[in-house]
Write a protein that binds this DNA or RNA. Structure first.
Lengths: 200, 200
DNA sequence: TCTTATTTAGCACAGTTGTACTGTATAAGA
DNA sequence: TCTTATACAGTACAACTGTGCTAAATAAGA
């Protein structure tokens, strides 16, 4: 689909003909479903976002220890396997393009708040706090909310670096970096006690 | 120049005609200096990298308190004014494209190590440690080097977020987030003490 | 002055892109 | 059966792209 093309050739390689070829139809056939390229693009991007959101929602059900659940949630944002690598490539490309392409404004508006909410969810589960209800709600504990935002920024950076330099960021390293960051940001002791002593 | 076009219309808006228009020459005139579009692109990208590197090198001279010097260095990587916003836009666009455009492999290869070295420099100055000499050298203190890599990832994330959502990241907030991260990552205690115990 | 090299302009050309349009199967309903 | 709506294929076209080529302007040297 569109995703593979973006992930393989970059977002500039997305042409109606290439997509039609890959989908096994003709350009006219494609146009029957999408009246314009922007429609196709928006559909693909939203479908991808929905897919990731569904995977995350799947981790909200069932009963796991909070920290495991938090890790599973956050790992959906990282390029830890072929699927998620494609997701990240598409996501970054769409975010980049949405800065200049007005037709992707909808995606742009949902991107940052969506990720932020996911990070808040993860932090809440990690610390055994009640998760925020609606999308923009901050965490009850102000300090914890700040840590959630720091985590968000860190994850965005890690995503970017790992996506751009996959050779320098093998999967195990990404997981380890995430774990270390979680341990440093949210030490499992009463918060006014010395938070050092993280694994060394 | 090329930079303005990238920053205004995105990297996909970079065409020889638009650049020639903006530069006040004709397409033929441009071609006299750059035999191909890739040459032009590479030149612009390297010139931008050199400009930023020169600004950072300027902060290495003179004598300032280590922490101020560290902040000045790191702030060169963040979109804190119009110039640096353009730099960041161009840099992100080039990094993105260099994943698929083989002619930018040189840039790609220098991107991550360069940023990493800058972060190591900043951390060294911030903590009064001897700065690394050559580009790939890690910090002497292994823990400090890990913190430098964490800082690097955080800064990449902050850069990305601030570049994509300038409205949600006013300059003062970016500065504050950087300061908070520095304070959290590198608490100002005697260096042989356990890291952590950041006052709260 | 004439000669020559450099710099710039303008145009042509082939290739690619998004999109509109026409025709043709296929399936369903009456 | 005929009718009709849907799902495609194929093509045409205008716009735009990078690049090559030719010619003119300009500067410099002798």
């Amino acid at each position: 689909m569109v995703w593979d093309v973006i992930s393989r050739d970059g977002i500039e390689g997305v042409t109606v003909r290439k997509i039609a070829d890959r989908a096994g139809v003709s350009v006219g056939g494609l146009r029957h479903y999408f009246d314009s390229q922007r429609g196709l693009f928006l559909f693909a991007a939203k479908a991808m976002a929905d897919k990731v959101a569904a995977r995350i929602a799947g981790h909200l059900r069932g009963d796991l220890p909070g920290r495991d659940r938090a890790r599973l949630i956050l790992e959906e944002l990282l390029p830890l396997d072929a699927d998620r690598r494609v997701d990240v490539d598409v996501w970054l490309a769409c975010m980049m393009r949405s800065r200049f392409d007005e037709s992707l404004a909808e995606l742009h508006a949902l991107g940052l708040p969506g990720e932020r909410h996911v990070c808040r969810l993860a932090v809440a589960y990690f610390c055994g706090q009640p998760p925020p209800e609606r999308n923009g709600d901050p965490l009850g504990d102000a300090h914890l909310d700040r840590q959630a935002l720091r985590l968000h920024t860190f994850i965005d950076g890690l995503t970017l670096q790992a996506a751009m330099y996959p050779r320098e960021f093998p999967v195990d390293d990404i997981r380890r970096l995430l774990d270390e960051e979680l341990a440093a940001l949210l030490p499992d002791e009463p918060p006014n006690q010395r938070p050092g002593a993280s694994g060394r």
